[in-house]
Amino acid sequence: MQTIYILWLRQIKRYIRSRSRIIGALGQPLLFLLALGFGLGPVYQRAGGGDYISFLAPGVIAMSILFTAIFSGIEIIWDRQFGFLKETMVAPVSRMSIMVGRTLGGATVATMQGLIVFIITLFVGFRPESIAMLPAMFLTMFLIALLFTAIGTAIASVLQDFQGFQLIMNFLVMPMFFLSGALFPLDNLPKVVALLTRIDPLTYGVDALRGTLIGSMHFNFALDYSVLGGITVLSMIVGSYLFSRIQV
């Protein structure tokens, strides 16, 4: 328990101390909100979609959680290069507790980032459907964060350096984002695209988040939460295994 706590605390401290990273990571969501929100808004409305900012806000929040979470998981590569990884590797504690501590820490950080972006969306004119759903929104954000931190950690356990990280960003993370329905509705898509969106775990995160924030969703909470929860557990198990096999 103490192991999990101290590794969690480490991630939080590192996050709070890197103010430039926090602010830098806000630029992208803001850009999406302004450029897409105001740029595509009129088109979306004319096509009968309703208020695009309302549709887009949950997607952009999910996006910032996705990126922050993956990045937190990927920090293992950093730790490997700066040597700190060895310190945790030789410690007489279970690999699972290291994995859980790191993942909870990264997920907390990603959730905080998501909350900041949520507040930004309020300034851009977004209004959530009901205040009563905010705890559910919070939970959903944390689930998304947990899932992608776990995936990031698992991936980072098999990468040696940042060159691999670029590949992961371009061929996994960006596609996951664009295919998740964060930017466009999932109705009436071509078959192949529809299939891809369904195997994208972020799709279920975005859907659940939209359910809590604007009350409209493509699937339902039961399906969304089971997919998110299931893949999270799976990633944690695979991640601990891969982590336990790291050699430095």
Binding site: K13, F82, F84, K86, E87
Partner: peptide, 11 residues
Amino acid sequence: VFQDPSTDDEL
């Protein structure tokens, strides 16, 4: 005690 650095710089 490792030969190479292994502390966390941000702490």
